[in-house]
């Protein structure tokens, strides 16, 4: 076979693979838009479901998902970023660094339903939080920690050591160096991890079913210790427990809202990232 032909074949393969990814996303979004866009209106976003979920909206579920994301944001993001800073910038023991990296990588690979079991055993039962928003928030926080830690770590080690030396050599303390240089320069990478985590928190279904998401409940959660509803479980419930002939539009509408929530956050992340990249480039 001649070289030019070989090259065309391989280029063809690359091209097909590249477009396959785009096509898969286009089909997914097109499908959801086609079936779901009709459901989305103000009422859908602001009202509770009625008539066996076939009418009304998804407000309690949307609110529950936003609550969960807020809890994850408050709990796991500071812990994740600070622990990554500690282990990259402060921990000197190479062995401990290695152990910690293996632990984080393994945690990232644990199936989410196992985190659900952990949350059920630890938060719901042992610590007696009950099936609640806080139990779910804590469970999801543990679940996304490895993502935040890994991406923060990548961002920190990508900063040239010469910049740390520059600050240290001027008589800055380690903390001043971290505060004024390391963290700001690492921000684009850290934000990427934060957004990925929030998207995970918004989309995870299995763990929250175990620790507090209700299939259906009247009213809204009135405290951190109430049960709640969330979009992913709502989608699951509509798809498996109702007659899709009646609830189909609501089902696709819910999926579309969840998707838009995640895509919207990713857009915000990209904007923030570009802003920081422009500010600090090396």
């Amino acid at each position: 076979m001649n070289r030019k032909l070989k090259q065309s074949i391989y280029f063809g393969l690359f091209r097909v693979s590249g477009w396959a990814v785009v096509a898969a996303i286009a089909v997914l979004i097109g499908y959801l838009l086609f079936y779901g866009i009709g459901a989305i209106n103000w009422e859908f976003l602001t009202q509770a479901p009625r008539v066996g979920m076939s009418k009304g909206g998804i407000f309690p579920q949307l609110l529950g998902t936003i609550y969960l994301m807020a809890l994850v944001l408050i709990i796991s993001i500071p812990i994740g970023i600070l622990s990554a800073v500690y282990l990259v910038e402060y921990q000197k023991n190479k062995f401990m660094k290695g152990v910690w990296r293996v632990v984080v990588h393994n945690l990232a690979g644990v199936p989410s339903v196992v985190y659900g079991l952990l949350g059920l055993g630890l938060f719901v039962l042992l610590l007696d939080m009950g099936a609640s928003l806080i139990a779910a928030g804590l469970t999801l926080s543990i679940l996304v920690l490895p993502i935040i830690i890994a991406s923060t770590r990548e961002a920190l080690i990508a900063i040239p050591p010469s910049l740390r030396e520059a600050s240290i050599a001027l008589g800055a303390t380690k903390w001043q160096t971290v505060r004024h240089h390391i963290l700001p320069y690492a921000m684009p990478g850290i934000l990427t991890g934060v957004i990925l985590s929030l998207s995970r928190a918004a989309g995870e279904t299995a763990p929250i079913i175990l620790v507090g998401a209700a299939y259906y409940m009247p009213g809204l959660p009135d405290s951190l210790f109430s049960a709640f509803q969330a979009l992913p479980y709502h989608i699951y419930a509509l798809a498996t427990q109702t007659r899709v002939a009646l609830t189909g539009q609501s089902l696709y509408g819910s999926a579309l809202v969840l998707l838009m929530l995640v895509v919207g956050m990713n857009l915000v992340a990209i904007m923030l990232r570009n802003k920081y990249r422009k500010k600090y480039r090396w």
Binding site: L163, E165, A166, A169, L170, G171, Y185, Y280
Partner: peptide, 16 residues
């Protein structure tokens, strides 16, 4: 010590 004794490095390393 480092405030009294400044250092300039091999490769220019201005802050970004």
């Amino acid at each position: 010590v480092r405030k009294k004794i400044g250092m300039v490095f091999q490769k220019p390393n201005p802050f970004p």
